[in-house]
């Protein structure tokens, strides 16, 4: 019977349309919209990998002796950088901390943004200054400071909390790492958490879906940080976070006295284009600046716990 099945299926496949028709349609589509509309990059809501910086902030504050004199605080823009093991940028967020320490607004920047023909995700490895300059050029916002965290540390941190809760709309399988996640609410920690944060293969919108995962994951993580666990956390992450030299963290952290409202959005991008550096997103500086200024000023949607891809 197997031969018969084979013949039947082959006969069915024989019915296929002429591939030249499809080829012609692909070419037409390419002309109309360079690469098809990849992402309805709606504003991606959720809270932030700000945790990367909120964490050390909370910590420094706890470690420091009770503030003798509270220096007047200023609003500051901090670039939050999540690094993979090769110092490529897996997560990139520009965060504005309000002077009174009650709110932080965050804009996720897709890692495939092209600046001067180079992908933004490789710049940190060349030099942190190059990355901050590129971000300033793209967003028009001044980067006062930056903090970089090894993403691998996040996996360990998640264990301290007994896992971090996320919710997936559909089961996902990473064809590369073989990491598999079922649909629905689940608690992730350790390597699994890391695999979740890193996956972009097998997701419909690749890195953009990943950015969303990072936001949701870190929102839950951030919500779990308390005075009581901050010190343990500090010990765990201190080796994994680097900040720029001129940054007075202790002074900066004094602004935080209570819960912090986090709002997050993602810089919208158009269809990707092909450049020497590969496929990436080109950003219209004028549009990006308007968007970023508004998002940092007024905040995007606040981080919810809705289900994501």
């Amino acid at each position: 019977m197997n031969d018969l099945i084979r013949q039947a299926i082959a006969a069915e496949a024989e019915e296929r349309v002429d591939s030249r028709t499809v080829l012609a349609n692909l070419h037409k589509a390419r002309k109309r919209k360079p690469l098809g509309l990849i992402v309805g990059v709606a504003t991606l809501t959720a809270a932030a990998a700000a945790a990367a910086v909120v964490v050390p902030m909370t910590i420094k504050k706890t470690e420091a002796a009770p503030p003798a004199v509270s220096a007047p605080q200023e609003t500051q823009n901090v670039l939050l950088i999540g690094l993979d093991d090769h110092n490529f940028t897996d997560a990139l967020m520009l965060a504005r901390f309000q002077a009174d320490g009650t709110a932080v607004s965050v804009v996720s920047l897709p890692r495939d943004i092209l600046v001067d023909g180079q992908k933004i995700n490789g710049l940190f490895a060349q030099s942190p200054a190059k990355l901050t300059a590129a971000v300033e050029k793209t967003t028009g916002a001044k980067v006062d400071h930056h903090a970089a965290v090894k993403m691998s540390a996040i996996g360990r941190i998640s264990e301290l909390f007994g896992g971090v809760a996320v919710c997936l709309k559909a089961p996902s399988n990473d064809p590369i790492t073989k990491a598999a996640f079922p649909a629905g609410r689940q608690v992730l920690q350790g390597d699994q958490a890391l695999a979740f944060l890193r996956q972009r293969h097998g997701l419909e919108n690749g890195d953009l879906d990943r950015a969303r995962r990072q936001q949701v994951f870190l929102a839950d993580l951030a919500s779990k940080i308390t005075k009581d666990n901050a010190l343990t956390l500090a010990r765990e992450v201190s080796g994994s976070i680097t900040v720029d030299d001129g940054w007075d963290l202790v002074g900066f952290a004094q602004r935080f006295t209570g819960p912090i409202g986090i709002s997050v959005t993602t810089l919208p991008v158009d269809a990707p284009v092909e450049r020497e550096a590969g496929f990436g997103f080109e950003v219209d500086p004028a549009k990006a600046r308007t968007f970023v200024e508004k998002a940092l000023d007024q905040g995007g949607s606040s981080g919810g716990s809705e289900c994501i891809r």
């Binding site: 019915e15 296929r16 692909l26 269809a271």
Partner: peptide, 29 residues
């Protein structure tokens, strides 16, 4: 196209799916 036609049993649906998928794939190539 042959594969898509065989699983869908409909060459037009197969064509639509293949075209859409390839456009998406191109962006992530």
């Amino acid at each position: 196209l042959g594969y898509a036609t065989a699983i869908t049993c409909d060459k037009h649906l197969a064509q639509d799916i293949v075209q859409n998928v390839l456009m998406r794939a191109q962006g992530k190539w």
